Computed example of a mutant assay.
Amino acid sequence: MLIEKPFYFLRHGLTDWNKEKRYQGQRDILLNDEGIQQAYQAQALLKNEDITAIYTSTLCRAKKTAEIINEVHKVSLLESLALQECHYGSLEGQLKTDPEVDANWRKGVTPKGAEDYHSFSDRVLNAVNDILNSSNVPLIVAHRAVFWPISEATNIGYDIDLGNACPVLMHPPAADKINWSTEFIGA
């Protein structure tokens, strides 16, 4: 369960491994030129949003995306190990050939040497709740899998395709609802 407070979420810009469809996990892969451009496009979309702090994964692809966004906002930029992508064990660096791996991981089938989904989810949700417990209007810049426990906790489901550098505003449920809602910025 998440503290019911609006927040922004942004997946990092594109990397070569995203393009090649490789598991990145906690490998520190740089943004490619397209990913840098995507981060600047997200910056333009977010420039008029009332963001008062940016929280980012320590992995360079997320951190660089956050730094680009912050060129306009000039707010506190806070790094968090807890916002890092999942550790995918033996799959890191491998091509994504089995479309069921991610779904099976969320169901408890942990790849060899990988972080189990339950521990990963707890790590992410604890970090997000710590962020939401502040007085800030936060932007969280992280990773694709980091959004999965958030999706689960907010009852929005896994069917949202969160593209690279596509900002989303998460709205807590209205008084008569149980589900959060998402608003894609610039869509």
Rank of each mutant, 00 (worst) to 15 (best):
W17H: 01
T110H: 02
K74I: 12
E115L: 09
C60S: 15
S151R: 00
H118R: 14
P111D: 10
R11C: 10
T110S: 04
P111S: 10
P172C: 06
H118Q: 15
T110L: 03
A103P: 00
E49M: 05
Q38S: 07
S90R: 05
N129C: 05
D176P: 00
D28F: 08
E152V: 03
D98T: 08
A66M: 10
F7E: 05
N48Q: 15
F7K: 04
Q24M: 13
L139N: 01
I185T: 08
E71I: 13
R27I: 09
E100L: 13
K74E: 15
S80H: 15
P167N: 05
R11S: 10
L132G: 06
D159E: 13
I51H: 03
G25P: 07
G108W: 02
A114W: 06
Q38C: 05
D98C: 09
I36A: 01
Y88V: 04
M170G: 00
A114L: 02
I140T: 09
K96T: 04
S80E: 15
I160Y: 14
I3M: 03
P111H: 11
E4T: 07
D50I: 09
D161S: 12
W17T: 02
L162K: 02
K47G: 01
R61N: 03
L46H: 01
W17E: 02
L139G: 00
S76P: 15
A53V: 12
A42V: 04
I156C: 01
E85T: 09
Q38D: 09
I178D: 12
N136V: 06
T154A: 04
A145T: 07
I160W: 13
Y55M: 04
K47T: 11
